[in-house]
Design a protein around this nucleic acid. Structure first.
Lengths: 124, 124
DNA sequence: CTTTAAAGTTAACTTAAGTAAACTTTTTTA
DNA sequence: TAAAAAAGTTTACTTAAGTTAACTTTAAAG
């Protein structure tokens, strides 16, 4: 299904989705930088790459939106995020830790495991 | 608890532990390379670093053993590995996927989440 | 024993991702 | 509308981790 996305790529796309949903507006580089706690230089570099590879739309000095391709990945990662978080809470992990851990785990979970967790969450 | 180990460092230490338990002998570079599917050059470089940082004992052209410090980390990671694998199997993930996924997840799980999973495994 | 194969080492290079800081563009505001 | 502040860009540098390939050491076999 995936064609080798890095954790970092997934994180950028996911945060664009999240930030966009908060405001319903295109997203700025600084928002992303502050969300992911990286410098604006890092964001600029990443956005160049994501743009070239067709995951986002953005012109020089312009704001950022996800393309269809980017959106699909972002949604995918974010749904894992939510499902894992939910699951962690259900087995007794604190909100704070659940939020922190799922940000890392979301990048390393197979589709099969994702489905199993989803099922588990439903049946409880 | 941890002082910033990378995934790669944890993987090397864990595989030394696993390989050593299989044979009860010190471990060779090639064994590690084949276990982790990296080149022997990569192993050599990593072993130099781990040696300098006190995680393994090894002399030039010699075999590899974990120091106390290295062993502690290896055991820690490996116990997460086993617990996560167990857990995945319990929620219906196939053996194969469970093994693959837990190799990644083991590096990203907090102590709190680890304990919760452990508890979950016990009470089922 | 010597030669050859296997194992280990080293060096030069690659890639992904970040930082810091100088620079440019855009936006705000007095 | 000009000056200052904020946002975005670019460049040079860093780090972690890998690869390939040449080289050295060790071990095994004739």
């Amino acid at each position: 299904m995936n064609e080798e996305l890095t954790k970092s790529t997934e994180d950028y796309l996911e945060s664009i989705l999240i930030l966009n949903r908060e405001t319903n507006e295109p997203v700025s580089s600084l928002q992303i930088a502050s969300f992911l706690k990286v410098t604006k230089g890092a964001v600029a570099k990443a956005m160049n790459r994501l743009n070239q590879e067709g995951y986002i739309d953005k012109e020089l000095y312009g704001q950022i939106t996800l393309t269809e391709k980017g959106l699909e990945i972002a949604k995918n990662v974010y749904s894992k995020h939510k499902e894992i978080k939910n699951f962690l809470i259900k087995i007794g992990v604190s909100l704070e830790t659940a939020e922190k851990d799922c940000c890392l785990l979301e990048h390393n979970i197979s589709d099969e495991t994702f489905l199993a967790i989803k099922k588990f969450n439903k049946n409880l």
